[in-house]
């Protein structure tokens, strides 16, 4: 669906990270964790394509949803300039989100950088009694949404590349240590592809299933233009699937990391 919705508020989380809350009865009622919206950031040909951005949090009662984005280029710069009350052109919810199996008792979300955002709603929606969140950032100043992740998980572990906050090193170090002591029914990944690849390898040794949210440059966002290809297993062969329609979330065993 393409909708013109109203921005409830926009909040600066750190020097280049913004949280935008959008009022949308349709998207808040239909969306699930891991899906995304495709946003027209500027007028006309300014930042020509829409920008696909993961849904971070859904408030079904108040009919709003949140996106969190880093200012990286033209599109996100324009997006950061919106104000409360402004109208915004949104397509969504799009794609396939994370699978939430209510029979699971123990789950973990593992995210790095901007990849942490879609994982918050997994924690919010999952009924499992044990929910671990392992989040990685480059440095302390970039740590965001710590309180929210704390609120919806039973254990929160943070790693920074430079050791300025939490564990010094990568989320995969923390995950390796964690799975030695605890079993998970499912692990959800979102972040840099090397992080996900390493993480999936760690879990494979323990036979723990996982899902990964994949990123790729998109065109239409709905599966028509076929540009956002990613390599997936098809029997003994492989084929290109499309992140916008077949994903962004895939079973880890289906993805071929390059």
């Amino acid at each position: 669906m393409r909708l013109i919705e109203k921005i409830n508020c926009i909040e600066k989380l750190n020097s280049d990270t913004f949280l935008m809350r959008i009022e949308s009865e349709n998207i808040s009622s239909e969306a699930s964790a891991g899906q995304f919206v495709n946003i027209k950031c500027g007028e006309g040909s300014e930042a020509f394509l829409r920008r696909p951005i993961s849904i971070c949090s859904i408030d079904r009662e108040n009919k709003t949803f949140d996106i969190v984005f880093n200012v990286r280029g033209k599109g996100t710069k324009l997006l950061s300039r919106y104000d409360s009350g402004d109208e915004i052109d949104v397509m969504g919810p799009l794609g396939r989100g994370f699978t939430i199996d209510p029979s699971h008792k123990s789950i973990a979300v593992v995210g790095g950088g901007i990849g942490i955002f879609p994982l918050l709603q997994v924690l919010k929606d999952h009924p499992a009694p044990n929910k671990t969140a392992i989040l990685g950032f480059r440095t302390r100043d970039l740590v965001v949404l710590e309180d929210s992740f704390n609120q919806y998980s039973t254990e929160l572990l943070i790693a920074t590349d430079d050791g300025s906050y939490g564990h010094k090193g990568f989320v995969t170090d923390l995950l390796s240590k964690k799975v030695e002591a605890q079993n998970f029914d499912m692990v959800y990944f979102c972040g840099p592809s090397v992080m996900m690849k390493l993480g999936v390898e760690v879990l494979k040794k323990h036979n723990i299933p996982s899902e990964v949210s994949v990123e790729q440059r998109m065109g239409c966002g709905i599966g028509a233009c076929l540009v956002c290809a990613c390599k997936t297993r098809k029997g003994s062969d492989w084929d290109y699937s499309h992140v916008c329609k077949d994903g962004p979330v895939f079973k880890a065993e289906d993805i071929i990391f390059d």
Binding site: F48, L49, Q216, R217, G219, C225, V227, A229, Y240
Partner: peptide, 21 residues
């Protein structure tokens, strides 16, 4: 078809290289 990335945004347009998937 071709390996990704298959799209680039350019001023007032896009470049694609889907490669007939």
């Amino acid at each position: 078809g071709n390996p990704p990335p298959r799209i680039a945004e350019t001023p007032s347009g896009i470049l694609n290289s889907v490669g007939l998937q």
